[in-house]
């Protein structure tokens, strides 16, 4: 077992000639919850997408749970099983029930028998408070419920790390807390989490560390109290004054 859950060394990424991620370094220990904050277009979502190989990188190194993922010899499908990914737009499979959204990868990737996979799925649906919605299709669920099913789906693969890409940004305000509560529970259970978020309250309360990204660079990286109450960088100060206590 490696020392870090996630280790990123001088990561660079371009979209054509646009340099979106500039020499990013990041180390995350097991059990740590890291919130990534920053303005829209700062590169924080792109960074997260690089971490599970959805986006390719141009230089640098990404090591997840001891496996260097930006290596042509590595089996990305295998690596991705240990990384749970939660998207802003949920991305549930609309042609499948909540239950089947969860069991699909268990059956097709982990080759688990149907009955066993359904047992796992029901346990996870119960964990996110939606066991009575097992037979519902995504279109019959609210945004908050869909996102909780998406979390259950990712957890089913028993990931070492969970990544959240603005998990509450597309939600109605009244369902945001249901999702944040599930995430808090995960954090308390010791899940390693990286959360790209605009929920400053969540970052302050739950995160062990807050990373501020601006224009593709990590500008500040520290404990929430340092980053929120004693920001050193003027751009971070400006950003915080816009998003907190408006």
């Amino acid at each position: 077992m490696s020392r870090w859950a996630i280790e990123v060394n001088s990561l660079n990424k371009f979209f054509d000639t646009h340099h979106v991620l500039k020499n990013i370094d990041l180390r995350v220990s097991f059990g740590e919850v890291v919130a990534i904050i920053g303005a829209s277009g700062s590169g924080k979502s792109t960074f997260l997408r690089c971490l599970n190989g959805i986006e390719t990188i141009h230089s640098g190194e990404i090591v997840i749970d001891g496996v260097k993922i930006n290596d042509i010899k590595v089996n990305l499908n295998k690596v991705r099983q240990s990384i749970g990914m939660i998207f802003q737009s949920f991305n549930l499979f609309p042609h499948m029930t909540a239950l089947n959204n969860i069991t699909l990868a268990l059956q097709k990737v982990k080759k688990m028998p149907k009955a066993d996979s359904e047992k796992v799925a029901f346990q996870l649906l119960e964990k996110v408070g939606l066991e009575e919605k097992a037979k519902s299709y995504p279109s019959q669920l609210s945004g908050g419920q869909q996102q909780r099913v998406a979390i259950a789906r990712a957890l089913a693969m028993n990931p070492r790390v969970m990544m959240f890409d603005e998990p509450t940004s597309a939600l109605d305000p009244e369902t945001v807390n249901d999702v944040l509560d599930v995430m808090k529970e995960l954090a308390h259970e010791g899940m390693t989490m990286i959360v790209v978020t605009h929920e400053m309250g969540f970052a302050r309360e739950v995160a062990d560390r807050v990373v501020y990204i601006d224009d593709g660079r990590v500008i500040e990286d520290g404990k929430p109290e340092e980053v929120f109450y004693n920001p050193k960088n003027p751009r971070l100060r400006d950003f915080l004054s816009k998003v907190i206590n408006v």
């Binding site: 599970n52 959805i54 499908n77 295998k78 991705r80 099983q81 990384i83 749970g84 990914m85 998207f87 737009s89 991305n91 549930l92 499979f93 699909l104 990868a105 097709k108 990737v109 998406a150 789906r153 990712a154 693969m157």
Partner: peptide, 15 residues
Amino acid sequence: IAKGQMEAARSLGLT
């Protein structure tokens, strides 16, 4: 079909 569908499927480890 929205790109996110393929991304979600691949992120679960499906080929």
